[in-house]
Amino acid sequence: MNRFLYIFALFISAFTIAQTEVKISADTNQAFIGDIINVNLQVHSSEQILWPDIEEVIAPLEVQKLGSIDSSSVKRKNVYHQNLAVQQFDTGHFVLPQLPFVSLQGDTFYSDSLAFSFLAVPLDTTNAIFDIKEPEKVPFNFTEAKPYIYGFIALIALIVLLYYLIRRFNKKDETIEEEVIELISCEIEAISALNNLESQALCENGLVKEHYVQLTEILRRYFDREYEIDTLESTTDEIIEILSTMKLDSVLVNDISDLLTEADFVKFAKSKPDKKTNGVFMRKSYAIVDDCHKMKEEERDV
């Protein structure tokens, strides 16, 4: 009888002890350094349990992620549940020690200990060093780039506008002058200017110097256009020298020389030729333009 009593007492005590049960499990017990091992803790108890400070207890393992403690009630028993992720940055064997759970009655229940092996990452020294990860590409964002694009377009437009305005202002006078000149041929322009000068009758009004200034200017401008020489910036001697090399008739060159020399005399030495001389030089001017143009035309035809 006593024997049955002992067996019953043992059974009852075993049943009473089994009221709190601690389970611990890991998804693996072997990993490379830096890899994560997921650990699952479960406590089944009819009593309230004091949960240990896991981060302090499991050193030197490092807690990478610590989940919250969930609790549920199954068949009048409380089930406490927590997930945690641990990792290690040294190679070797490490032990997750027994975790102590204390009941309100002061009893302590321990989990099992777990052993983990952390292995070194094998290095392939045959290959060149490469980035573990590629730099992350930031996707193009049109909204962000919009102000810069609009600014660039505005700058280009401004430069083009300024360039156009500068060119327009610089060339304004030239274009007008060129257009007029291009329309009238040089000999017509010269003859027309001579007619205009004659009609002004400057000599008759005592403006002999002004008459010769205008006369020489007409002829020099004509030579400038007809022979494309810079007569306006040349002296009489230089003009005659250039014209002498242009297959012009020597008599014609002498006439030009006489006229320009006489004009120089009037312009720079206060000479006042008589009415007859003025008339002669005026007629010579028409003849010079006419002859020069004819010779140029013949030259072009040849």
Partner: peptide, 10 residues
């Protein structure tokens, strides 16, 4: 010459 012409200046 009793007067100056542009040739003299040049």
């Amino acid at each position: 010459r009793g007067y100056v012409i542009p040739e003299d200046v040049r």
